[in-house]
Amino acid sequence: MNNRATLSRQIIHTCLEMTRLGLNQGTAGNVSVRYQDGMLITPTGMPYERMTEEAIVYVDQQGKHEAGKLPSSEWQFHLAVYNARQDVNAVVHNHALNCTAVAILGKPIPPIHYMIAVGGSDHIPCVPYATFGSQTLANYVYDGIKTSKAILLAHHGLIAAEENLDKALWLAHEVDVLAAWYLKLLATGLDIPVLSSEEIQVVLEKFKSYGLRIEE
């Protein structure tokens, strides 16, 4: 496992990349990685460009954070993701424009394109709304993330979880593209054709052997 300093630098890099890719605005969004008996997570309310390795906060499995630092207000749902899925080690949350627009509609993204399988399912779910930073929202995330590694949060944004930060950021970007396509299709007012569950299962199998190849 990478040491804390390396992981902290990777978290900061991911935050800056998220902004560069147009997936986030201001101090919205947060990023974490699994670490020891808990996680390392971005601090609350700090602009990404001012973030330092020392500002990254350790939160243990019980939700206790190290003294003198305040973790992101949404640390609870990050912990919920790690508890729900042992196959992921990184979580990216943002308010990406397209994903958030679909989330405001309260809609999952259906299988409009074979890339829907990036989340490991035949759709990108949308979990119910709850106040940010609440245990209720964490509970919704816990249930939703079991279905797909990417989920929408109603009236809020996107969560993407993967085995490392590079893959989690890639997943977040791919889902925002899917959301953009879906919004364009909704705007036509036409019935939207979708791929069958059987076809998505074929794609899911193919992704196991030649999906995203970002090494640790």
Rank of each mutant, 00 (worst) to 15 (best):
residue 4 R to W: 08
residue 8 S to P: 12
residue 10 Q to A: 13
residue 13 H to L: 10
residue 14 T to E: 05
residue 18 M to V: 00
residue 19 T to A: 02
residue 19 T to D: 02
residue 19 T to G: 04
residue 23 L to E: 12
residue 29 G to I: 03
residue 30 N to G: 05
residue 30 N to Y: 03
residue 34 R to A: 04
residue 37 D to R: 10
residue 39 M to D: 09
residue 42 T to S: 13
residue 42 T to P: 01
residue 44 T to S: 04
residue 47 P to K: 05
residue 47 P to D: 00
residue 56 I to W: 10
residue 65 H to V: 03
residue 66 E to T: 10
residue 70 L to I: 13
residue 74 E to L: 12
residue 77 F to Y: 12
residue 82 Y to T: 02
residue 85 R to V: 08
residue 86 Q to Y: 13
residue 88 V to C: 03
residue 90 A to W: 06
residue 90 A to N: 07
residue 91 V to K: 10
residue 93 H to L: 00
residue 93 H to I: 00
residue 97 L to A: 15
residue 99 C to P: 02
residue 106 G to T: 15
residue 108 P to Q: 11
residue 110 P to I: 10
residue 111 P to D: 01
residue 114 Y to D: 15
residue 126 C to P: 14
residue 127 V to P: 07
residue 130 A to S: 09
residue 130 A to R: 10
residue 141 V to G: 00
residue 148 S to W: 01
residue 151 I to Q: 02
residue 152 L to F: 10
residue 153 L to R: 05
residue 155 H to P: 13
residue 156 H to R: 09
residue 157 G to D: 01
residue 157 G to P: 04
residue 168 A to I: 06
residue 172 A to N: 02
residue 172 A to V: 06
residue 175 V to Q: 03
residue 177 V to E: 15
residue 178 L to Q: 01
residue 184 K to H: 06
residue 186 L to H: 03
residue 188 T to D: 14
residue 188 T to Q: 09
residue 189 G to A: 04
residue 189 G to P: 00
residue 197 S to K: 14
residue 197 S to E: 12
residue 198 E to K: 12
residue 200 I to D: 13
residue 202 V to Y: 13
residue 211 G to Y: 06
residue 213 R to W: 09
residue 213 R to K: 07
residue 216 E to M: 15
